[in-house]
Each structure stands twice: as structure tokens, then as C-alpha cells.
């Protein structure tokens, strides 16, 4: 297939992915709205004393069901969740196909400009969610991740669209594959962490259709714990690439400044989790601030601040 047609196919896949993500979001939302109500109580009623210095100990894993007496949710609610998941996977495949066809059309790594980067980021966020879902039940996050991905893809297609083509020589490097892939992957996981953290703040104390706060916090922590080393790696490979391309590994270019700020902010979150009195709400707020820094770096820096990063050309 000639390059132009491939590029058109890629654009169609993006549209398909947006629609599928939206349908998936609706299905997940239906499950969330009509599904089972859960109490906000730890599974093990009270932590039993442990003779040995156990320190911070295991918290419960499975969400707890509300005490009996609540209305049974309609049977279709759970089915809606499954449908949401299926739609999500199909959308994921469309998103992947969009990236692959774009890559074939331009004959390089398909994340050379803002448009391609955001498409890849949405893909990474959905991947992070779906892969987590394979092991842990995080369907409650579905509608939030899906709406974020749909809006992200929509914004990319409407506002950031760049027609398929070559990149400037500085971007034509294998470091794109390493550095940007790591950044995309980490960002995708941070999206999952932020979705969970946002729900943590929204969720009240009483029974709710959302999982317990402890569970929400745990999911967020998990995602960030995996994402943080990846982000560290992304920043370092960025420095390696800058060393090759610009003659210095670190020069406080706005993009570098904000990846550094993001990194420090997430490190602060990890510290807050280990500091008495900062767990829970304060730590979650720090996490969301860190996420805001991440997003600003992605979008704000490119729009408001100029620098060496060629991504800045919208």
C-alpha cells in the first residue's frame, strides 16, 4: 500500500478507536452506576496483633461487598462491565493498528511529533489499564481511563494533527525508540495512578459503588511504583540522547526542567507514603500534583514554552 493510503488508514483507525473507547466508557459507566455497592471497610475487620515487629503490614486485597440487606444489582450490570472490557480491547487493537500503519506510512518510529505522541500515550494508558485488569479487578477505573483516552485521541486528531511525513534529522535516531517509548509507557501508568487517585479523593467514607479507599490507594500506588523507575529510565535515556544530539546531557531546557519536576514530585509522593501522617489524602494530593506536572510537560511546555525539543513544533 502506498504511504498516503496507509496514513489515511491510520487516521481511520484513530477514529475507530475513539468510538470504541467511548462505547467502552459507557458500558463501564453503566456497571459502575448500577453495580454492587461496597462498604469502605477493610476486609479483615481489625488488624490482629502480631507478635513480631511486623511494621507496615499487609492490607486486604479483595474489595469487600456491602453487608447483606442491600438490593441486588440488576444482572446486566456485571455484563455491561464485561462488554466494556471487550470494547476496550477492540479499541486498543484499533489504536495499536493506527500506530502501526502510521509507522509503516512514515517509515520511522511513529512518535515523532505531538500528534503521534499523544496517540501513543492514549494507547499506553489503555494498555496499562487492560493489563492491570488481567490480574487485578480494576474495572471501576474503566470508564475514567476510557474517557481520558477518547478525549486524548480526539484532541490529538482535532488540534494536534500533523500529516504523515519525515522528522527533522535530530529526531531521526534510535533513541526515539528507547526514550520516547519509556516516557509513553510510564505516562500511561501514571494515568492509571491518577485515575485511581482522583477516585480516592472523590469517594466518601460510606458505602459506595467504588472500591474501598484502601483499594483505590493501593491501585494508584502499584501503578506509580512501576511507572517511577520507568520514568527515571526515560529521563536518563533522554539525557543520553541529548548528549548525542546537542552536546550536553542536561541543559535545563524547559522540557528537561519539567521532566525533572515531575520526577521529584513523584519521588515526594513515594516519600509521603513512607512518612507517618502523610499517607492517604495528602499523599494522593501530591500524586495528583505530580500528574499535573507530567501533563503540563506533555502539553503545556510545547504550547507555552519554547526549547530545543522539536516536539514543540505543533
Amino acid at each position: 500500500m502506498p504511504a498516503e493510503q496507509l496514513a489515511e488508514v491510520s487516521d481511520l483507525f484513530v477514529v475507530g478507536a475513539i468510538l470504541l473507547y467511548l462505547f467502552s466508557m459507557i458500558a463501564f459507566a453503566a456497571e459502575l452506576a448500577f453495580g454492587r455497592v461496597r462498604a469502605d471497610a477493610p476486609a479483615v475487620p481489625a488488624r490482629r496483633p502480631v507478635a513480631v515487629g511486623a511494621g507496615a503490614d499487609a492490607a486486604p486485597d479483595e474489595p469487600v461487598e456491602a453487608p447483606p440487606g442491600d438490593v441486588e444489582p440488576p444482572a446486566w450490570a456485571a455484563k455491561a462491565g464485561v462488554a466494556g472490557l471487550a470494547l476496550g480491547w477492540v479499541g486498543w487493537a484499533a489504536n495499536l493498528a493506527a500506530i502501526l500503519t502510521r509507522g509503516l506510512a512514515v517509515e520511522r518510529w511513529p512518535w515523532g511529533n505531538m500528534y503521534e505522541f499523544v496517540v501513543a500515550l492514549c494507547f499506553a494508558a489503555v494498555t496499562a489499564f487492560l493489563v492491570t485488569q488481567v490480574r487485578y479487578n480494576v474495572r471501576f477505573l474503566g470508564s475514567f481511563v476510557m474517557i481520558a483516552a477518547a478525549v486524548g485521541l480526539g484532541a490529538a486528531a482535532r488540534l494536534l494533527y500533523t500529516s504523515a511525513g519525515p522528522v527533522v534529522p535530530a529526531l531521526d535516531s534510535y533513541w526515539v525508540a528507547i526514550h520516547v517509548s519509556a516516557a509513553v509507557l510510564a505516562s500511561g501508568l501514571f494515568v492509571v495512578g491518577a485515575a485511581s487517585g482522583g477516585l480516592y479523593l472523590v469517594r466518601g467514607d460510606g458505602p459506595s459503588r467504588l472500591p474501598s479507599r484502601a483499594d483505590l490507594e493501593r491501585v494508584a500506588h502499584r501503578a506509580i511504583v512501576v511507572a517511577f523507575p520507568l520514568w527515571t529510565f526515560a529521563v536518563i535515556t533522554g539525557a543520553l540522547w541529548a548528549d548525542k544530539a546537542w552536546g550536553r546531557y542536561w541543559g535545563w531546557d524547559p522540557k528537561e526542567v519539567w521532566s525533572f519536576i515531575t520526577w521529584v514530585a513523584y519521588a515526594a509522593y513515594l516519600h509521603a507514603r513512607a512518612t507517618g501522617g502523610w499517607r492517604g489524602r495528602p499523599a494522593t494530593i501530591i500524586q495528583l500534583v505530580a500528574f499535573a506536572c507530567l501533563m503540563f510537560n506533555l502539553i503545556g511546555v510545547n504550547i507555552f514554552l519554547s526549547g530545543l525539543h522539536s516536539y514543540a513544533d505543533l
Binding site: 535545563w252 524547559p254 526542567v257 519539567w258 525533572f260 519536576i261 521529584v264 514530585a265 519521588a267 515526594a268 516519600h271 509521603a272 512518612t275 502523610w278 506536572c293 511546555v301 514554552l305
Partner: peptide, 15 residues
């Protein structure tokens, strides 16, 4: 924790 915060905050004007 506070110093980490300050570290991040202090970098902002640099951009």
C-alpha cells in the same frame, strides 16, 4: 519531603 517539594518548586521559574 518538604525539601523535595521546594526542589521541584524552585525549578519552575527556570522554565
Amino acid at each position: 519531603l518538604i525539601l523535595l517539594f521546594l526542589f521541584a518548586l524552585a525549578s519552575v521559574p527556570g522554565s
